[in-house]
């Protein structure tokens, strides 16, 4: 039963990711991405990593994607944005990247099909993760906190209403948000 669930979630994840990448409207793409992340969360849970699954939903889909949504709403692209997107995304655009990605995929498949290892089937409790995190990986935790601080400060500065360009004297006018 869990096995079927695993493959189903995998399929959903793949499908919604493909949809996310190929949409014209960024909001639609975002919704598909959230679905993909939820499918990933299910896969995490099935693989015996409940803590990671919850984190995926709470932080990744719940905070990061929501941030995306807010920014897209702030940008206020609208129907004009959709037209622009149509212009930019012609089929000819997909050829080069597709070729490269197919080649890369081929190589990855080639490597992966050479190994034969199954999963242990043991679930790992959050307690074990916590012990691991504040045990051997405590330094990583500290650095991550500094990284978050940097992100915070950067985000604050970059998200301000406007920044005046001292050199060119550019001052935002009413058209700027």
């Amino acid at each position: 039963m869990n096995l079927i669930l695993f493959y189903l979630a995998a399929a959903i994840s793949l499908g919604s990711t493909i949809m996310a990448v190929t949409r014209y409207n960024p909001s639609h793409g975002l919704i598909y991405l959230i679905i993909s992340l939820l499918a990933s969360a299910i896969i995490f849970y099935l693989l015996g990593a409940p803590f990671a699954a919850v984190l995926e939903i709470v932080i990744y889909a719940g905070a990061i994607m929501v941030l995306f949504v807010f920014v897209i709403m702030m940008l206020n692209l609208g129907a004009r944005g959709d037209e622009t997107e149509h212009r930019w995304l012609n089929p000819a655009m997909w050829i080069g990247p597709s070729v490269l990605c197919v080649l890369l995929l081929g190589e990855v498949v080639y490597i992966l099909l050479q190994t034969q290892q199954t999963l242990t089937g043991a679930a790992i409790s959050p307690k074990a993760v916590g012990l691991e995190l504040f045990g051997p990986y405590v330094l990583a935790v500290e650095i991550s906190s500094m990284l978050l601080l940097a992100g915070l400060v950067g985000g604050y500065h970059l998200g301000r209403r406007f920044l005046v360009d001292a050199r060119s004297g550019w001052v935002p006018d009413e058209a700027d948000q």
Partner: peptide
């Protein structure tokens, strides 16, 4: 109990997702 799946299937899924993301970045 966690599901017992051949590891390469999981990694293949990860690979596919990665490549799709790469496609999106380039295209």
């Amino acid at each position: 109990e966690a599901v017992v799946v051949p590891m390469e299937h999981g990694l293949l899924l990860a690979g596919f997702l990665f490549v799709i993301g790469l496609l999106g970045v380039m295209a």
